[in-house]
């Protein structure tokens, strides 16, 4: 009897494993682009009509522009972004040793501004910061998402998973209630996607502008009537293997 307990524990763990993975089966991961209307898909597919490209274009100009007391441009150190920034967005967010916290791409750009360029940080959701982030992320377009394997990220990622599965807000919904359990079904007139952050910063028709993943998360928090939380690490882990689309378009 005594020997059965570890077996039972293994069994329970296996069942839990199945339960937590039940939302999206392996090989079933689909980008939000698959759930959009053909018109919106066409808007994203054509670089000439994708409004997100306006931000990429601005980012390209900012990349070359000397800034701050150091009077150096991003290109001054990083040179040609198409070489040096390729694949960066596919593995972000990363662990920042200085603050001992995870840091996203926009955060890294701002910390680089402060340390190397000795310039004022760009405001969150400002056009300039979104443009630079979109430009850097655009260099990874078409590459599979491969989240950083840094062990120091594990506790933050686990926390993200816990938050993703915790019921919150007045509506008592977790992220998983919709995006793991009920993806593909409809909420009002809209299809519920799997919530993969494949194309951020992205152009949202509803916003009429480009916005960050943080802004999108705040939207969902308002949707379930709760306060914002940081989930990015867990979301990129869920989206492992999906292709980067920046700048994506979403309805």
């Amino acid at each position: 009897m005594h020997a059965l307990w570890p077996l039972a524990a293994v069994g329970a763990a296996a069942i839990c494993g199945i339960v937590s993975a039940a939302g999206i089966e392996d090989g079933e991961e689909r980008s939000g682009v698959d759930f959009m209307t053909p018109e919106t898909q066409a808007l994203q597919a054509d670089d000439m009509s994708n409004p997100g490209m306006l931000w990429v274009l601005q980012g390209e100009q900012l990349w070359q522009q000397a800034e701050g007391r150091a009077d150096v441009a991003c290109a001054g150190c990083h040179d040609d972004a198409s070489q040096t920034m390729r694949g960066v967005a596919a593995r972000y967010s990363a662990f920042d040793a200085a603050t001992e916290r995870p840091i996203d791409l926009a955060g890294r750009i701002n910390s680089c501004r402060a340390e190397r360029q000795q310039a004022e940080p760009l405001a969150p959701e400002s056009d300039a910061l979104l443009a630079l982030t979109a430009y850097v992320a655009h260099q990874s377009r078409g590459m599979p998402i491969t989240p950083a394997t840094d062990a120091r990220l594990a506790p933050f990622r686990d926390n993200g998973r816990r938050l993703f599965q915790s019921r919150i807000g007045q509506l008592e919904l977790s992220c998983a209630s919709c995006h793991d359990d009920d993806w593909g079904k409809r909420l009002g007139g809209s299809v519920i996607p799997q919530a993969h952050p494949t194309g951020y910063p992205l152009f949202r028709l509803e916003w009429q502008t480009v916005g960050s993943l943080q802004r999108r998360l705040r939207n969902c928090m308002i949707g379930v009537r709760a306060e914002p939380l940081d989930l990015e690490l867990h979301l990129t882990e869920r989206a492992r293997g999906l292709l980067v689309e920046t700048p994506a378009v979403r309805p």
């Binding site: 670089d47 000439m48 490209m53 306006l54 931000w55 274009l57 601005q58 009429q208």
Partner: peptide, 29 residues
């Protein structure tokens, strides 16, 4: 800094009908 994307075919035949696309970043408040 103008943020505009224009698409004009680089080459065309005499008399050909070509499609021109132009998009500009503007808030349109």
């Amino acid at each position: 800094m103008a943020r505009a994307l224009v698409n004009v075919p680089k080459m065309a035949r005499q008399g050909e009908v070509v499609e021109i696309k132009a998009m500009i970043a503007h808030p349109m408040e």
